[in-house]
């Protein structure tokens, strides 16, 4: 029995700044998760992850994570990934401050 594949995005941290980024359809790294490529096919997800991992000069620790289709683009499912789109809750730093 096949289960429906949970959509994914590829995410990582940038090598120089260390901030969270997401892989877009046109192979760039975006600091806005909504611009990420939402991957709905498991085989394609593995290909995209391999592609991300072949760019160690740009990012560190690429991985696939669950995402949901949102109004403006993919949005996080898990709270950890939500925090990565925003920054710390104790200080107005990180993505939330970059607008």
């Amino acid at each position: 029995m096949t289960r429906r594949y949970t959509p994914k995005v590829v995410t990582a941290n940038r090598l120089l700044a260390g901030d969270a980024v997401w892989l877009t359809e046109d192979d760039t790294w975006s600091t806005d998760m909504a611009e990420a490529e939402l991957i709905e096919d498991e085989a394609h997800a593995q290909m995209r992850l391999l592609h991300a991992q072949s760019r160690p000069h740009e990012v560190v620790g690429a991985y696939l994570t669950d995402a949901a289709p949102g109004h403006d683009g993919p949005r996080p499912v898990h709270f950890r990934e939500e925090f990565r789109t925003r920054g710390p809750s104790n200080r107005f730093h990180g993505k939330q401050a970059e607008g």
Partner: peptide, 22 residues
């Protein structure tokens, strides 16, 4: 250096990669 090679070297010098930054 690959990240696998670099990671133990940076950790020896107290440098971690966290959620939002180093």
């Amino acid at each position: 250096l690959t990240e696998d090679e670099f990671k133990p070297l940076r950790l020896m010098n107290g440098l971690y990669l966290q959620l939002h930054a180093y």
